[in-house]
């Protein structure tokens, strides 16, 4: 059976479908579509990282752009002296991870709205630093990125080259998160979201798990920011600002909280609508805002929920629920065991 390895369910069908999508999409896209798709992959990584802490750990952050912007600025600043793409990507991820670990350790004493305000304040502090340190960062005007991506087989300059670089980065991040949410630590994180007191009573150091998942999400956001610097050739303080954090939240909610692929879908939806709507009207934000309100009012499932409903209705029952995001366990394997205890 597809998707089973030694009798257990693995996420390969989803990954295979996504890989094909990344590989073949440029064939059907209009010329300007490749650039949009490239941006979608980057924002999808960013949105998935926020979706991880929001939907799997219950941490609502309004400052997630802090890590995205920190990653982007790391590439812009360090890229003036270092040219190895791997080293730059790694540095950007590490800087963002460090910032997330420190801020998380400080902020986890607070919960709910207070935590949200602290994350917002933290990102605004970084914004102010980028804004004020004009000799280094170019201040409000931002700075151009001189580093050119080179993964070991020549400089990636063409549109299609960037597309595949971001596409595979997205696939890698998705796979990593898929493994994480099914892993022991991922399940524990989910348990902490459900009932932290009970998890402590069961013997879990809940603080360390929350800090880990927050750091992982921050690192991934920093990675996305670094990719964005390569994609956009230019960074501005807006990449650290609360508007971008808010947009990421909208992507996650439109796509579906509590799912992995939902936020990526939300990012695609957001970027595409933004590009098309801004083509026709300068009030594109209004259009997106209305769509967002509709999604919030219609329930929390988001696009992912809608897709699943359509999927379940159109496919014969024996194919149903194969792509269930929340339940990586395969019940059939258990039934076999039951018969031979």
């Amino acid at each position: 059976m597809i998707g089973r390895l030694s009798g257990r369910r693995v996420p390969w069908p989803g990954v295979a479908v996504l890989t094909l999508l990344v590989l073949l999409l440029p064939l059907v896209l209009p010329p300007f579509g490749v650039g949009i798709a490239t941006e979608v992959f980057i924002m999808a990584i960013f949105a998935m990282s926020l979706g991880l802490i929001l939907g799997y750990a219950g941490l609502v952050s309004l400052g997630h752009a802090a890590f995205f912007g920190a990653g982007a600025y790391t590439v812009a600043l360090l890229g003036q002296y270092v040219f190895n793409t791997y080293l730059l990507l790694l540095s950007a991820t590490a800087v963002a991870a460090l910032l997330a670990a420190i801020s998380g350790a400080l902020f986890f004493r607070s919960t709910g709205a207070y935590f949200l305000m602290l994350t917002l304040a933290f990102s605004q502090v970084l914004f102010a630093v980028a804004f004020q340190a004009e000799p280094i960062t170019g201040g409000d005007d931002g700075m151009s990125v001189v580093a050119v991506p080179d993964l070991g087989f020549g400089e990636i300059v063409g549109e299609l080259g960037l597309y595949y670089m971001m596409g595979f980065a997205f696939l890698g991040c998705y796979l990593l998160l898929r493994l994480f949410v099914a892993s022991p630590a991922g399940k524990v994180v989910k348990g902490i979201m459900e009932n932290e007191l009970r998890m402590r009573a069961l013997g879990y150091n809940t603080f360390s798990y929350k800090l880990f998942v927050y750091t992982l999400a921050g690192a991934m956001a920093g990675f996305a920011g670094a990719l964005y610097a390569y994609f956009n050739f230019y960074v501005t303080p807006d990449l650290l600002g609360w508007v971008l954090s808010g947009q990421a939240l909208i992507m996650v909610i439109i796509g579906g909280v509590g799912t992995l692929l939902g936020p990526a879908l939300g990012a695609a939806f957001f970027i595409v609508v933004q590009n098309y709507a801004s083509f026709y009207t300068e009030y594109w934000a209004l259009v997106l805002g209305l769509i967002f309100i509709i999604f919030v009012l219609l329930g929390r499932g988001g696009l992912m929920h809608l897709l699943r409903a359509v999927w379940n209705r159109t496919l014969p029952s024996r194919f149903r629920e194969r792509e269930d995001e929340m339940e990586p366990e395969e019940p059939a394997a258990e039934h076999q065991k039951e018969r031979t205890p």
Partner: peptide
């Protein structure tokens, strides 16, 4: 699963699925 994992050495592991 959550209760039993608490005393397992792999409770911090982040790759192999819990199941």
């Amino acid at each position: 699963h959550l209760a039993v994992t608490a005393r397992k050495p792999y409770r911090f592991r982040i790759w192999k699925p819990l199941s």
